[in-house]
Each structure stands twice: as structure tokens, then as C-alpha cells.
């Protein structure tokens, strides 16, 4: 399977799914009842057609130059990307729960150690403490914008 085939199938599915959602939107009670759905329906249809077109192009070998097949095994970068994404999700999850200072410190030190290895722990600690405290203070003190506080400590 080539990347273009995947893109084609995905666009097709997104188009269909989106159109279905557009069709099942609640009807407007004031004015034309289907007014909120018209534009989305056009988009859904357009997306579906583009997906089909891309598949046809691909099958008809129109895109020879761009043809790339995809392997499903993760490369080393793939693993790093997955790890960073996972850390990002955790960070977003704890952003308000742990407060800005703590969550940012934890997140940055994990990402930094991913990039640097543990040996540089001193600079890792330095950068993550510096960044989280610096940003927090800049927002709170200079800009007067309160970032999420740590629970209980109120910092």
C-alpha cells in the first residue's frame, strides 16, 4: 500500500463521516431549517470526491514520481516521536491538575532527557527549572496573567 492510497482512503472516509455528521446536525428552528448543514455537506461531498480522485490517480499510475510505499515498522525516529507525543499528552492532562510549574518542570525534564541522555542531568534540571519558573513569573508578575496554580500550595 502506498501513502497515496492511504491518503485517498482516509479522505474518502473523512468525507463520508463528515457528511453523515453534517446531515444529522440538529435542524435550525429560526430561518431555513437546513441552513447550518448546507456548507458542511458541500465540504463533505468535496472531500469524498477528492479521496476517490486520488485513488483513481494512484491506480492509474499517474503519480509515479510521488509513489512511495510505507512500511509499518517504526523507525528509531518513529519511536522517539511516539514517546514525545505520549509525554505531550501526559503534560496536557496534568497541565491544570498539577499546575503550570510542576507539570512543566516534569515535562521538560523528561523531554530534555530524551534528547540529551541522563548524563547531562545538571543542565537538564537547570533548563527545566529555569523555563518553568521563568515563564510562570513572566506571566504572573509582568503580564498579570495567572497560569494554573499547583493544588494546595497555591503556587
Amino acid at each position: 500500500m502506498t501513502i497515496n492510497t492511504i491518503t485517498g482512503i482516509l479522505s474518502f472516509l473523512i468525507g463520508i463521516g463528515y457528511s453523515y455528521m453534517a446531515w444529522t446536525l440538529p435542524r435550525a428552528t429560526v430561518g431555513n431549517p437546513i441552513a447550518p448543514s448546507v456548507f458542511p455537506l458541500m465540504l463533505g461531498l468535496g472531500m469524498t470526491i477528492m479521496g476517490i480522485l486520488l485513488l483513481i490517480q494512484e491506480k492509474a499510475w499517474l503519480l509515479k514520481k510521488e509513489r512511495k510505499s510505507v512500511s509499518l515498522t517504526l523507525t528509531q525516529y518513529g519511536k522517539s516521536i511516539a514517546t514525545v507525543t505520549f509525554l505531550c499528552i501526559l503534560y496536557a492532562f496534568f497541565f491544570e491538575r498539577l499546575g503550570y510549574l510542576l507539570s512543566t518542570f516534569l515535562f521538560l525534564s523528561s523531554v530534555l532527557s530524551l534528547f540529551n541522555g541522563k548524563e547531562r542531568w545538571k543542565s537538564i534540571l537547570g533548563v527545566s527549572i529555569g523555563f518553568s519558573v521563568g515563564v510562570y513569573a513572566l506571566f504572573g508578575e509582568v503580564l498579570n496573567i495567572q497560569l494554573p496554580r499547583m493544588p494546595f500550595l497555591g503556587l
Binding site: 509525554l87 523528561s110 494546595f152
Partner: peptide, 17 residues
């Protein structure tokens, strides 16, 4: 291990809090 260590650190901080 780094990730694990960081998590542990987080847990410690949380408990202290």
C-alpha cells in the same frame, strides 16, 4: 528509566503537596 525516574519524582512532589 529516565521517564520512570521522572514519574517517580512527580509522585514524590505530589505526595508532598
Amino acid at each position: 528509566q529516565t521517564v520512570k525516574a521522572v514519574f517517580l519524582l512527580g509522585l514524590v512532589c505530589l505526595t508532598t503537596a
